[in-house]
């Protein structure tokens, strides 16, 4: 396609239009992926529980997410009495913003990345750490005790697991000597395929990252923030219609983001697992899908954690494990027994 005609048509507005076009090119497929992730979740959990799952809307139920979206869009948004209206409506936006903004630095290919910045990993950590505001403001602005309790639980959980998650990523930094996500992936490709990926030398950190990722996104078995049996639906109990849908979108977009980061940091991004097949974007897609499947599998398998056990796991198990493994990796790298790139 020749872009010169378009460039002439827009004139000085072209850089702005081109940036918007690139953002849409990332966000639109992401939203479609979110919609079909909800469908995949219902189908996969259905089959795990020996049910069929949604199969009425469209052929084999494939139009179900679109029907859900239409339903949520046409429903009324109810603002509770005594709620802080501005913050109440602001909270869903604050919770989806980080889930979308973090995609700016995610590389899909060595050349296909919106912003190839040096401090990419730091940027992702900083942006995702802002996600907790959506939850905590939603809980406070709803003027409801269930929402407030859910928000407090969730915020404490997210802040605690963030530490373990960031420590796990420090191991990735030690492996790759760079904060740039493209370089992090390229360091993992030494021609040996699967065995040169980060997840083998950093296996304990990979597990900690994966489980902390489940806790960070408030997914089962760490979904005490919306524990239905105790606090109704947690921080978003007062939300309805599109405001609720935005929280829902944010949760699933965050799941995809955590999976994409796991694929890039530990599973070699777009690199091929075997040396004789070419590298490329489909591999990244397959790895993201695999990690997402783990998320759904966890939800269908494990009962919900009790709150004090979640805190114990985060502070007394994960953080010490990451610290010990960082020391092990640091020492191992200095010896001649180190098998990976230095």
């Amino acid at each position: 396609m020749d872009l010169h005609y378009l460039e002439q048509f827009f004139g000085p507005m072209w850089p702005f239009v081109w940036s918007i076009a690139k953002i849409v090119a990332i966000v639109l497929p992401l939203f479609i992926a979110v919609a079909y992730l909800t469908f995949a979740e219902r189908k996969i959990i259905g089959y795990i529980q020996v049910r069929v799952g949604p199969n009425r809307v469209g052929p084999k139920g494939w139009l179900q997410p679109i029907a859900d979206a239409l339903k949520l869009m046409t429903k009324e948004i109810i603002v509770p009495t005594g709620a802080n209206k501005f913050l109440f409506l602001m909270a869903p936006i604050l919770s989806i913003m980080p889930a979308l903004a973090a995609w700016a630095v995610i590389p899909f290919d060595p050349n296909l990345v919106l912003a190839n910045v040096n401090a990419g990993l730091l940027y992702v950590m900083a942006i995702t750490s802002m996600g907790v505001y959506g939850v905590i403001i939603a809980g406070w602005a709803s003027n409801s005790k269930y929402a407030f309790l859910g928000a407090l639980r969730s915020a404490a959980q997210i802040v605690s697991y963030e530490i373990a998650m960031v420590f796990a990523l420090v191991g990735v930094l030690m492996m790759s000597h760079s904060l740039n996500l493209v370089e992090i992936v390229q360091r993992q490709g030494s021609g040996w395929g699967l065995v040169s990926w980060n997840f083998i030398p950093l296996f304990p950190l990979f597990l900690v990252y994966l489980i902390s990722g489940v806790a960070e996104t408030n997914r089962a078995p760490f979904d005490v923030a919306e524990g239905e049996s105790e606090i109704v639906a947690g921080f978003h109990v007062e939300y309805s219609g599109m405001a609720f849908a935005v929280f829902f979108l944010a949760e699933y977009a965050n799941m995809i983001l955590v999976s994409a980061l796991a694929a890039i940091m530990f599973l070699g991004g777009w690199l091929s697992p075997v040396p004789f097949l070419p590298d490329g974007f489909p591999w990244l897609l397959a790895k993201i899908a695999f990690v997402l499947f783990l998320f759904l599998w966890f939800r269908a398998t494990f009962p919900r954690y009790r709150y004090d056990q979640i805190m114990r796991l985060g502070w007394k198990v994960f953080i010490p494990v990451t610290l010990v493994w960082l020391i092990v990796i640091g020492g191992w790298m200095q010896t001649s027994l180190w098998l990976w790139q230095k």
Partner: peptide, 19 residues
Amino acid sequence: AEFLAIALVLVYVGAVMVL
């Protein structure tokens, strides 16, 4: 000063202000 800027967001916005 991108490191300081991101550290400000990560530490103050992401953790201190939440508490």
